[in-house]
Nucleic acid binder design. Structure first.
Length: 276
DNA sequence: CGCTCGGCCTGTGCGC
DNA sequence: TGCGCACAGGCCGAGC
């Protein structure tokens, strides 16, 4: 599931198409296009050049001439840069299953959007600012300071697990990095945000940034579906401490990792070093 | 405000 | 071996 480090990795890979031109687009599953009719979407992107590829939270932000395309990957979305269509007839050189949108580029390459579960969305906006303004701060931004985060936590009284997954509170964390950050900070996912001491809030701030930076350095976490902008796996799955490790020993204290449902989501933690 | 639930999806993996 | 079904979860809207 693409979270901040995965989307950041895809954005960096796709920076190579900056300056390229979208010759034409095709949409095979119209429902992945948000807000617009798929035919209008195809019509509007045709001929526009790619000015810039960036990221905000879990959104991939592709700035075109007149519009901005936002890509949200949902659970299993992928955006891969593929080579030329082969003379033999196969449309895309990389894996072609679950292909929902295809962008032919002037350079000869193709940008393919694939999504097994179809939870992802592509949108095209004249001004993405109102959508992106609904997101909380960027965790890796220098403006996101420990002091500011402590104030944010004190102002709410939700469980840490719920709050950290809320994109309007903080942008970019999903289930994997939330569990990892709470483990790193030695804080229970059940803890209410306003009960944290100043020292605990600073620890959580530090932990969030550390697990995200580690995720980016490892080019993302590939559990099953995630691939980067060129179809490759990430390696952060080898660095996880609790996520997906139910019953296995906590790397810090040896107690078995627990999986519980918190706020409707599978949550992994060590009850011994993350006491309530 | 906070919380839960249902819907959207399909591959995986379990029980029988 | 195969069938059927619960489960996985990001996000949104509804309802309490």
């Amino acid at each position: 599931m693409p979270e901040l480090p995965e989307v950041e990795t895809i954005a960096r890979d796709l920076r190579s198409i900056e300056g390229d031109i979208i010759l034409r687009a095709r949409v095979c599953w119209p429902r992945i296009i948000a807000w617009l009719d798929a035919r209008d979407f195809v019509e509007i992107v045709r001929g526009q050049s790619v000015r810039r590829v960036g990221r905000r939270g879990k959104y991939l932000v592709i700035s075109l001439d007149e519009h901005t395309m936002l890509v949200h990957f949902g659970m299993t979305g992928r955006l891969c840069l593929c080579g030329l269509p082969s003379p033999a007839g196969s449309a895309v050189r990389c894996e072609v299953k679950h292909l929902h949108a295809l962008f032919a580029l002037a350079s000869g390459g193709c940008l393919a959007y694939q999504d097994v579960r179809k939870f992802g969305r592509l949108s095209l906006l004249k001004d993405p600012a109102p959508v992106l303004a609904r997101l909380g701060p960027e965790p890796l931004d220098p403006l996101f300071t420990p002091e500011r985060f402590a104030d944010m936590l004190a102002a709410r009284r939700r469980r840490l697990k719920d709050l950290l997954l809320d994109q309007s509170f903080l942008a970019g964390l999903g289930n994997i990095y939330t569990d990892e950050a709470l483990w790193t900070a030695r804080l229970s996912p059940h803890r209410r945000s306003h009960t944290l001491s100043r020292e605990e809030a600073i620890r959580l701030h530090e932990a969030i940034r550390a697990v995200l930076a580690q995720g980016v350095a490892a080019r993302g976490t590939t559990f099953s579906d995630y691939r980067d902008g060129l179809g490759r796996r990430g390696t952060n799955q080898y660095s996880l401490n609790v996520y997906g490790r139910k019953g296995r020993p906590c790397p810090r204290c040896g107690a078995p990792v627990v999986r519980a449902v918190v706020g409707g989501r599978g949550t992994h933690y060590c009850p011994s070093c993350q006491p309530v």
